[in-house]
């Protein structure tokens, strides 16, 4: 069973994504702010971290940067998925640096997206 952390400040998205993921059998923890997500990552480990890029307090990349002390680079690449409504070249470049995937909101094909979220090693 997958253990997923969902960091998303848009409550509607957060709630429905959580439900959709749980329907597929995952255990989902949610956070609305980046800082709280960092705190949670210090004490718990997840199979997948789905993180919005533009959070209210800090950016999704900041969350990745802060979890470096706990996670190895290879783990970061596998575990993190960045979701964003603003998928620019710079964002893609930066994500490449960490080796993690970027998914652009809104997701056109929900099933495919959920597959990606749940397809971790």
């Amino acid at each position: 069973m997958s253990k997923i952390l969902l960091v998303e400040d848009e409550l509607l998205i957060q709630k429905s994504l959580k439900k959709l993921l749980e329907k597929r059998g995952a255990t989902v923890d949610v956070e609305s702010s980046g800082r709280e997500a960092i705190q949670r990552l210090k004490t718990q480990s997840y199979d997948r971290i789905i993180c919005d890029l533009m959070l209210q307090d800090i950016s999704g990349f900041d969350v990745i940067e802060e979890s470096k002390s706990k996670l190895q680079a290879s783990e970061i690449a596998v575990k993190f998925v960045i979701i964003t409504a603003y998928c620019s070249e710079q964002v893609l470049d930066k994500a490449k640096k960490y080796g993690c995937q970027v998914l652009s909101k809104p997701f056109d094909d929900m099933n495919k997206t959920l597959d990606i979220f749940l397809s971790h090693a």
Binding site: L11, L12, S16, L20, K105, M110
Partner: peptide
């Protein structure tokens, strides 16, 4: 675009779910 995209997406997602 950025400010409306998120809530709209949430709306759609919720309705679909």
């Amino acid at each position: 675009k950025h400010e409306l995209s998120n809530p709209l997406f949430g709306l759609r997602l919720t309705a679909e779910m």
